[in-house]
Computed example of a mutant assay.
Amino acid sequence: MNDAEQNFFRPKWRRVAITIFCAGWSALEWLTGNPFWGVIFTAMFFYCLWKYWYTFDENSSAE
């Protein structure tokens, strides 16, 4: 992740919002019977969990 992306996602509310959005959109696609888009947004949800919650370094000082 480059510095510009890291600075944009530094506030926790943005990381929460994008993760919830992907989870909700994934559920919507599965519930409406669109498995292709359901898989895409489920993958995006897990990517958000990995990138913004598991490996995100809140202590790095990107200036």
Rank of each mutant, 00 (worst) to 15 (best):
T32F: 11
Q6H: 15
A4S: 15
C22F: 15
I40R: 00
N59V: 02
F8P: 08
A17S: 08
G24K: 01
A17D: 09
I40W: 10
L31N: 13
W37H: 12
N7C: 13
F21C: 03
R15N: 05
F9L: 10
N59C: 05
G24R: 03
W53C: 03
V39K: 08
C48K: 01
F9W: 15
E58Y: 07
Y47H: 11
M44H: 09
F45R: 00
T55K: 10
R10T: 07
W25R: 06
T55Y: 07
W25G: 04
A62Q: 04
D3P: 05
P11M: 03
E5Q: 12
F45Y: 07
F36D: 12
E5A: 12
W53R: 00
R14K: 14
N7I: 14
W25P: 02
F21N: 07
F9P: 03
S60Q: 11
Y52L: 14
T42N: 04
L49W: 01
C22E: 15
W13F: 14
L28K: 10
D57Y: 00
W53I: 00
F46G: 08
W53K: 00
R10W: 04
R15L: 06
N59Q: 10
S26C: 15
A43P: 00
F36K: 09
F41K: 05
W30R: 03
I40Y: 12
A62F: 06
F8L: 14
F21G: 01
M1T: 08
D3M: 08
A62Y: 03
I20Y: 07
S60W: 05
M1A: 10
F56C: 02
